[in-house]
């Protein structure tokens, strides 16, 4: 029921997913450091962002480069509301809803105007729209803080000044807010892709003309999928704003973030949704821990001249790239695609 009749299928995959979710569920108690908590929060946020993108790319076959724009709308919605009207829960809710509403409207407009064109032209249009949003965020300084972005106060309940007892504080509240909202959004997306609508989306991905010949209004369904994905991405952006207490173009609207999302979807497995959980975890762990791990290994092999050079922490991006190539080579349908039984 909770998984909408779509369990992970496959023992290894189920164990992997259960471990990730269980660790995320108790992360503040297992890893009390601020950095570890930030990693867990980022994983939870990226799961929602990537799952919503997978609904577009993996389930509907829509290639969009504007997904981070919707992520940014949610983040800026909360940031602007908190900056302008003070650090209250009402502002958080209003900001998140405003960002989500804007994301839905823009996604619907972009969809209705451009989903009729061929996939490659649609992708180009979304790229242009995303670039425009990035420029807009950088130039509307009064509202967005320009390139510097916005730093703001969050409700006191979410800060370390809010004491919970037992050594815990508002950071724990922030974490469980992010974890709970992310879990609810993921389960909602899982429900959508396993609903009659999800079936139509998969039919559209496979052959749009065949779907139309069955009487399905594909433009409407594609636009609806785009709007739902945009809404989820926007809410993920709002969570990021609460986590970072900062929003800027690089953090939410950058093209490198868009590439990260694409990589996570490919690594995790397109059209599986569960791939978002595996992919986001691998990507975030690699981004945060590969460099220090290489530093440790370089020290361990300090006596071996070539190994020390190869494991130099400054070369972490090279190893990250090789790791991704290996994953794509050995798991062409993504990790979940490979581990999932038909």
């Amino acid at each position: 029921m909770l998984l909408s009749g779509d369990p992970p299928r496959g023992r290894i995959l189920s164990a992997m997913l259960a471990t990730i979710v269980a660790v995320l569920a108790v992360a503040p108690f297992l890893f009390p450091s601020t950095r570890a908590l930030a990693v867990a929060e980022r994983i939870a946020i990226l799961i929602v962002l990537t799952a919503s993108y997978d609904m577009l790319l993996g389930y509907t076959g829509i290639v969009s480069f504007a997904h981070t724009m919707f992520f940014g709308m949610g983040a800026y919605g909360v940031a602007i509301a908190l900056t302008r009207f003070g650090a209250g829960w009402g502002q958080v809710v209003i900001g998140a809803l405003a960002g989500m509403l804007l994301a839905i409207v823009v996604a619907a407009i972009v969809g209705l105007l451009s989903l009729r064109v061929r996939a490659i032209f649609f992708a180009m249009i979304t790229l242009a729209v995303a670039s425009f949003a990035q420029i807009l965020a950088s130039t509307m300084r009064d509202w967005t803080g320009g390139e510097d972005g916005l730093t703001f106060e969050v409700p006191k309940t979410l800060t370390s000044a809010f004491r919970l007892g037992g050594g815990y504080n508002g950071n724990l509240v922030t974490y469980y807010l992010i974890f709970t909202v992310a879990a609810v959004l993921f389960l909602f997306l899982l429900r959508v892709v396993n609903s009659p609508m999800g079936r139509v989306l998969q039919a559209i991905r496979e052959n749009e003309f065949r779907a139309e010949a069955l009487g399905l209004r594909t433009l409407w369904y594609r636009t609806l999928a785009g709007a739902i994905a945009a809404a989820a991405a926007s809410l993920a952006g709002s969570l990021l704003a609460l986590q970072l207490r900062y929003t800027g173009p690089d953090a939410t609207l950058s093209f490198s973030l868009m590439v990260d999302i694409l990589l996570i979807v490919v690594i995790g497995g397109m059209g599986t949704l569960y791939g978002a959980i595996v992919g986001a975890t691998i990507m975030t762990m690699a981004q945060y821990y590969l460099q220090p791990a290489m530093g440790g290994l370089a020290n361990a092999f300090s006596g071996v001249p070539l190994m020390q050079a190869v494991l130099d922490p400054d070369r972490w991006l090279l190893w990250l790239g090789l790791l991704f190539i290996a994953i794509v080579y050995f798991f062409p349908t993504g990790i979940v695609g490979r581990l999932r039984t038909p």
């Binding site: 139509v200 998969q202 039919a203 496979e206 052959n207 065949r210 010949a213 009487g215 399905l216």
Partner: peptide
């Protein structure tokens, strides 16, 4: 004109809406 990644049941359901 079948949808190969959907099950037989799901293919039939598509036609019913």
């Amino acid at each position: 004109g079948i949808f190969s990644q959907l099950t037989v049941r799901e293919n039939l359901l598509l036609a019913t809406g």
